[in-house]
Amino acid sequence: MARSLTHFLPLLLFVCFASIASVALIMTLSGERKLSELPSALIGKPVPVTELPSLSNPQAFIKIEATTATPYLVNFFASWCAPCRAEAPALAILGKQIDIIGVAYKDKPEDSRKFLADFGNPYRAIGIDNDGAAGLNWGVYGVPETYLISKDGIILKRHAGPIDGDILRDEFLPLIRSLQDRE
């Protein structure tokens, strides 16, 4: 009897495989699973303390620190990145609700300035990450990327890619509101 049961083993293995494949496929189809999106390793961890020359005043530095008075966003952008233009409206809306610190990733300062002039400047302060070193520390793998940081300096959320209306409404705004309510 035990022997004949072992003949069900291949079927069992196949059923396991097929159900995983089905679930994965359905999730990919429904858009729940995004092939290109990677979870950040930094979520729940303190921000990497970053000091960058400021875009508005190259002599000064802006510092992204462990603790601040309020929660804030850090947005990596570049003038050469098309999706960054696409998320300008969303950032404009976000900028009214929460401080955004911009990091101009591998961008020429004059290009960044022109970009901001063309597409609006939602940032409270902007740092220049000329060689992408800060991006590396944050685990950035492409711009735009946006991080939400609590006032204790813990990274709560990372979004890679442009923020569109849906993501703004469903992900960022509720989270920011709940953070601000808590204060």
């Binding site: 233009r85 696409a86 300008a88 609006g120």
Partner: peptide, 11 residues
């Protein structure tokens, strides 16, 4: 020009 996004200036 912003590929269909209504950018702040347009708004």
């Amino acid at each position: 020009s912003a590929e269909g996004q209504v950018i702040p200036e347009a708004r």
